[in-house]
Amino acid sequence: MHPPPDSEGLHEPLPRPLERTLRLAVLGHVEAERRRRHPTVVHVGRPGGGEVVFACAAGDPDDLGVRTDVLLALLSRVDHPEPLVWITRPGDLETQDDDACWLAATRAAAGELDRPVELVLVGRHGWRDPRSGLSRSWKRLRARSG
């Protein structure tokens, strides 16, 4: 069963390649970020297949226009027909104000590009789509062999 055309975000059943891609985003975060407290990082591209990042710093402008420009610049630097935006940050994956601001900027950038751009939140134990609430989590994520 497919979601209604006006519903936003990811819905079941997820295509297997997207499942693997999102798992790779979590695994990449776990392997790359050992600190429990770290800055929010906006990733654009495909996990394991080329990405560009923007590390947020305290005092960065939180204006929608600036965030949209950041995303448009990142999206212009990736060579993938269906780039993904994923945000890594400490804490649980409940949507926070900052996540909602990045989601609004992602929507604006997608509108300017006239193409869909998916956004997910990624933490140490899983991922979550802030629009639909769809998520996956693992107690202990490990790289698959082979």
Rank of each mutant, 00 (worst) to 15 (best):
G133S: 00
H125T: 12
W86V: 07
D98R: 13
G126K: 15
D92E: 05
V120I: 15
L64G: 01
I87N: 06
L84S: 04
A143F: 01
H80G: 10
R67N: 06
E51Y: 00
V122K: 10
A105G: 02
A100H: 14
T95K: 15
L74T: 02
E31T: 10
A58W: 06
R128I: 02
I87K: 06
E19I: 10
D62Y: 04
P5W: 06
A108V: 02
H2Q: 12
T40N: 00
Q96L: 12
S137V: 06
W102G: 07
V30P: 06
G123I: 04
T68I: 00
R144G: 10
L27P: 05
P39Q: 06
A105W: 00
R89E: 01
A143M: 08
T88W: 01
R46S: 04
T68S: 02
C101S: 13
G123E: 01
P81S: 00
L103Q: 13
P61D: 03
R77L: 02
S137T: 11
D60A: 07
A25V: 04
P3R: 14
P81F: 00
V66Y: 11
L72N: 05
W102E: 01
H125V: 07
D69W: 01
G65W: 08
E33N: 04
H38L: 07
E31C: 04
W138R: 06
R35V: 12
L75H: 05
R23S: 01
G50L: 02
R131N: 11
A55D: 09
L72Q: 07
A104Y: 02
G111E: 01
P61S: 15
R144D: 12
P13K: 11
D69M: 02
T106Q: 12
P130T: 02
V26E: 01
P39D: 03
E51M: 09
D60L: 03
G49L: 08
C101P: 01
R34S: 11
L103N: 09
G48I: 11
T68N: 00
A58L: 09
P15A: 15
P4C: 14
D79F: 08
D79G: 10
R46V: 12
P15V: 14
L72W: 11
P81N: 02
R36D: 15
G111P: 02
C56I: 08
A109F: 08
D129P: 13
D97I: 14
P13Y: 07
A108K: 07
D114A: 14
V26G: 03
P61V: 03
R77H: 05
D92F: 10
C56N: 07
S132V: 07
T88P: 00
V41T: 14
L14Y: 15
R131T: 05
V41C: 10
V44R: 06
R131M: 13
V70L: 09
P81I: 00
P90F: 12
P13L: 08
E82A: 11
G9F: 09
R89L: 00
E31H: 03
G91L: 04
V117K: 12
E19T: 06
R77I: 00
G111Y: 01
A109M: 09
A32C: 00
L14H: 12
R136S: 13
V122W: 03
L134C: 07
P130F: 06
R36Q: 13
L71G: 09
Q96V: 14
L22Y: 14
W86K: 12
